[in-house]
Computed example of a mutant assay.
Amino acid sequence: MNNSVKDPCRVAVLSGPSGSGKTTIVGRILSDSAVPIQMAVSATTRPPRQNEVDGTHYYFLSSDEFQARRDAGDFVECAEVHRSGFWYGTLKSEVQRIQDSGSWVLLEIDVEGALQVMQIYPDATSLFLMTPSVDEYERRLRSRGTESEEVIQRRLRTAAEELKSADSYRHHIINDDLDRAVQEICDVLEAREKDFYAR
């Protein structure tokens, strides 16, 4: 059974290892993009932290509700993250909500989730964010000064695995200059938007 969604597909998927600058890039895309674009709000079984608002930061679901919706096929992607026992995912209804508003959907998700999304949206605009070298990932992680050596090593192992999947993405963005990387992504989105109107 083919569950894929045909064009026009205003879905942008952004992935990249820890230290590649995803959070900063996302903020700039949302403010600088010439095409209307909104960040999809993820669902999670993780309890809310102080000041987190349901429906704004995440859709907070109980484990039972998350599992029920997973069984019903309500997610475009979902996974247990970092063996934490907490599940995260993107609801189809969230993608539809944004598309109905006339905006592109921006999904900032890991490789595992991105590959799931690309199965459903094979014409999604997939973007893999990279640093100029593997050494740069480690330098950026260490410069944060917020994580233990064990966490850094785990993130570096994950980064090595994620880099193996880079060829599954349509576009590779080297984040060696923030302004240039943001402009490159915005140019890709604008070009895809023009393609849709040209059809």
Rank of each mutant, 00 (worst) to 15 (best):
R69I: 07
H82Y: 11
S33R: 07
E77P: 06
S42E: 15
Y137Q: 00
S84K: 07
E150Y: 12
G21H: 05
T44D: 07
S93F: 09
I120P: 11
Q50H: 15
I37L: 10
S103H: 14
W87E: 05
V13Y: 10
V26S: 08
S15Q: 05
V81I: 15
Y137L: 00
V76N: 06
A79L: 12
P132F: 04
I37T: 09
F75I: 00
D71L: 01
Q119C: 05
D74E: 14
S101P: 08
G73C: 05
V111R: 03
T24V: 07
V151H: 04
Q119F: 09
F66I: 03
P47C: 11
T24S: 14
Q119G: 15
R49M: 11
T131I: 01
T56K: 15
G16L: 00
D74C: 01
R142K: 11
S42A: 13
I109R: 04
E65N: 13
D123Q: 15
D100M: 02
Y58L: 04
L129M: 08
E52L: 05
D100R: 13
S143G: 05
Q116H: 10
V105E: 07
R49P: 04
D32Y: 04
D135Q: 10
S148K: 00
R69H: 10
Q50S: 15
E65Y: 08
F75D: 03
L107G: 14
L106P: 06
S31V: 02
Q67V: 01
T44G: 07
G85D: 13
I37W: 14
Q38Y: 09
E94W: 12
H82Q: 10
E80Q: 11
D135N: 12
F128Y: 11
E52I: 02
R139P: 00
S31L: 03
R28L: 08
V81N: 13
R46F: 12
G89F: 09
Q119S: 13
V53D: 04
Y137G: 00
I25D: 10
P48A: 05
T90F: 13
R142W: 04
I37R: 09
L127I: 13
S63M: 07
G19H: 05
G21W: 08
M130S: 12
Y121E: 02
G27N: 15
E147M: 00
L107S: 03
R70Q: 06
S20F: 03
V41H: 10
A40M: 08
V13C: 08
C78K: 01
G73H: 08
E94K: 06
T23Y: 07
G145N: 02
P17Q: 00
T146Q: 05
E80P: 14
R144N: 02
L115K: 13
E77M: 09
V117A: 14
D110V: 07
K22I: 02
A68N: 10
T56C: 12
G73Q: 08
Q50V: 12
T56Y: 12
M130G: 03
S84T: 11
G89R: 14
P36M: 04
V151E: 10
